[in-house]
């Protein structure tokens, strides 16, 4: 004997009956709608609401649009290239030795400017000598010229490295397609994973050395990020970089996190002309 459809209807109608229906729903919706519309106008962003749950994210999107960080970052105009080609040309493998803690760190980075590679700082923590190579290319000796443990970003100066740089993209929307490329552990060299931007938000957490609270702008990405791929780019459909992958979710195998291009912009900017070696502090645990 099983339940009837009427039982099901009754369960759906009666359960949790004490429904506190707010009386000002229409007014709240209208107020929120006006705010969204105003911000949209400011940012010149059309139809952002098409992506679900975007209402809360729009405010910051509008603010970022005004800053125009993109212009300060993109060197002139680049032709659009496929993410696959972009990855092959500009994504590099980083091998760094940290004698202080008897460790060799292998990670990923990407060229973004002439002889400059940007990567995650945690892959360089406590290291003394750093090598960089493109897919199938020879190894080049690199020098750490920017090291930001708060953001988890570092820049390498690699004299003689012939690889072209990826340009940085404007802010991504949730749902945008991406390719995450890197040298994942136990994967064929230069592993490329398709994915999607889930959301963009300001995330607060501890810095690399667990000493201070930092708030960073990050993308949550629906993509299978493997260990070793941290430091790699989040490549947009036109071959530009939305950001830098720095973590994967511990409890969900297909969620990764990336710092946005806006977040890494100051470090990238300084690194463009830096040539002087900076200390990489100590290993992280």
């Amino acid at each position: 004997m099983t339940f009837t459809e009427d039982d099901l209807r009754a369960a759906l109608t009666e359960h949790g009956r004490s429904a506190p229906v707010p009386h000002d729903l229409a007014a709240v919706a209208e107020r929120r709608g006006r705010t969204v519309r105003r911000r949209r106008r400011v940012a010149g962003v059309a139809a952002v609401l098409a992506c679900a749950g975007a209402a809360a994210a729009i405010g910051s999107q509008a603010d970022l649009g005004r800053r125009g960080d993109r212009d300060t970052l993109s060197p002139a105009t680049y032709p659009s290239i496929s993410p696959q080609v972009a990855a092959k040309q500009s994504v590099v493998q980083i091998t760094a030795a940290a004698p202080g803690c008897a460790r060799t760190l292998k990670g990923t980075g990407f060229v973004y400017s002439r002889e400059r590679v940007i990567t995650a700082a945690h892959g360089l923590a406590g290291t003394r000598s750093v090598d960089v190579r493109t897919l199938g290319g020879p190894a080049y000796r690199a020098r750490v010229v920017e090291y930001d443990p708060r953001r988890d970003v570092a820049v390498l100066f690699v004299p003689g490295l012939p690889a072209p740089g990826l340009r940085f993209a404007a802010t991504a929307r949730s749902g945008d397609r991406v390719v995450v490329a890197g040298f994942g552990r136990g994967r064929p060299p230069l592993w490329k994973v398709p994915g999607r931007i889930e959301s963009r938000h300001r995330a607060t957490g501890l810095d690399l050395y667990h000493t201070t609270q930092v708030t960073r702008e990050v993308y949550t990405v629906h993509a299978r990020v493997e260990p070793g791929m941290a430091g790699g780019p989040l490549i947009a459909a036109d071959g530009s970089a939305y950001g830098l992958v720095f973590a994967a979710a511990l409890d969900a195998p297909d969620i990764g996190y990336a710092l946005t291009a806006n977040e890494i912009a100051p470090v990238a900017q300084h690194g463009r002309t830096a040539t002087k070696s900076v200390p990489t502090q100590t290993c992280t645990d």
Binding site: G16, P20, V28, R32
Partner: peptide, 23 residues
């Protein structure tokens, strides 16, 4: 409420949906 099983979240959901509908 039936979709999410929680009245507070239901209110959030309805408000978000109505905001989009208003626009």
């Amino acid at each position: 409420y039936l979709l999410c099983g929680d009245w507070a979240m239901a209110e959030d959901l309805v408000q978000t949906a109505l905001t989009k509908a208003w626009l």
